[in-house]
């Protein structure tokens, strides 16, 4: 069996994960680039006399995902301290907040449909709907990732499990940042 000392080198999984993150950054960057080009083409934003979307549900999304990032961070801290109870609590709260985020997105879509911003009513609603779909789909992937952490209490000190926690967390925080950018550029301003 080939053994490679990784003392002086990152773990292959870390390198692979970094590359995957670059791919995801490029995916969302392409979406933001498209958004920028479409928006700067218009003289008024929102175009076609649409009103901005009510900020209620976007705020709920923002707060829930910010909190979830906080609790996920707390989870990994308590995992390091081998505190099963607290770690478990934080992990469950993270997961629930992720669900709250998805529900608030669903409410946002319903709300937009109610005020006439249905998917097919022009570029403004295309962007709002399309980009939130893509992001929400990734949140679902993130939630699945969180499920893979649930057996943490059997894996204290296991290096590959520590990496798993690190990577799921990074992915989750990344989605958090993407949402904040979306919130700022698409809803707030």
């Amino acid at each position: 069996m080939q053994k490679i000392s990784t003392q002086d080198m990152k773990h292959p999984k870390e390198i692979a994960f970094t590359i995957l993150m670059v791919s995801w950054v490029m995916l969302f960057a392409s979406l933001f680039l498209s958004y920028a080009l479409l928006r700067f083409k218009e003289t008024n934003w929102p175009p076609m006399g649409f009103e901005s979307v009510s900020l209620l549900w976007p705020w709920v999304s923002t707060i829930s995902i910010l909190l979830s990032s906080y609790f996920l961070h707390a989870f990994s801290k308590f995992y390091d301290l081998k505190n099963i109870k607290k770690a478990n609590k934080n992990l469950v709260i993270t997961f629930l907040l992720g669900l709250v985020f998805l529900v608030s997105q669903k409410m946002l879509w319903s709300h937009m449909n109610e005020v006439g911003l249905v998917v097919s009513s022009g570029i403004f609603s295309s962007i709002l709907h399309g980009f939130t779909w893509v992001h929400a789909a990734h949140i679902v992937m993130g939630l699945i990732g969180l499920c893979f952490l649930r057996k943490f209490y059997n894996n204290f000190g296991d290096e590959s499990f520590q990496l798993r926690i690190k990577h799921v967390s990074h992915f989750w925080h990344f989605l958090d940042i993407v949402w904040i950018l979306m919130f700022l550029t698409m809803f707030l301003f």
Binding site: I19, L27, S30, V119, S120, I127, G130, W133
Partner: peptide
């Protein structure tokens, strides 16, 4: 490949949205 395939992915995804869900990108 790792850097630029996602860009194509984003493009054909938006195109698919246009075709299937009625967006107008």
């Amino acid at each position: 490949n790792a850097i630029f395939l996602p860009v194509l992915g984003a493009g054909v995804m938006l195109l698919t949205f246009d075709r299937v869900f009625g967006t107008t990108f």
